[in-house]
């Protein structure tokens, strides 16, 4: 489809201290509902957005981390995570929510959405986008 553009959403802020993360997620959902090619990149404190085990009960805020797991249904199948940002924070892939999608072209096999990338790979990733939105 010629009017489908490649969108990369760059998430670099932790989830609850500011409203950026939630706003980004809402824009992603809207963009994906319009069937654009949507990809997400989590780097710097943005990696905390998809940390496992978030419980906002006591903080009395909405825990929106379960919503990232719905993105596979929205055909958002590429979630890039900056390896260096994880390492700097003492995190590994196992500390992140297990995000998956069902591959329609492969008999609906469940596949991992998260791809760890280096900063060189991020540079190349950015170059191939039509639009980059930063949050």
């Amino acid at each position: 489809m010629s009017d489908t553009k490649k969108f990369l959403y760059v998430n670099r802020k932790a989830p609850y201290g500011t409203v950026y993360a939630l706003e980004s997620l809402e824009v992603v959902l809207i963009g994906a509902a319009f069937e654009q090619d949507v990809q997400l990149l989590f780097m710097d404190d943005g990696v905390f957005q998809i940390a496992k085990g978030q419980d906002t009960g006591e903080a009395e805020m909405k825990n929106f981390s379960p919503t990232y797991s719905a993105l596979g249904d929205y055909e958002v199948t590429k979630m890039y995570v900056d390896k260096q940002s994880l390492e700097e924070r003492g995190l590994t892939l196992d500390d992140l929510i297990h995000l998956t999608y069902e591959d329609e072209d492969d008999d609906y096999a469940e596949k991992d959405s998260i791809r760890l990338v280096s900063r060189e790979e991020i540079a190349a990733l950015m170059e191939e986008q039509d639009v980059i939105l930063s949050f």
């Binding site: 710097d44 900063r119 991020i122 540079a123 950015m126």
Partner: peptide
Amino acid sequence: SLDSCLDCVG
């Protein structure tokens, strides 16, 4: 931001 930016420029 500058640090991350400079790592990710082509």
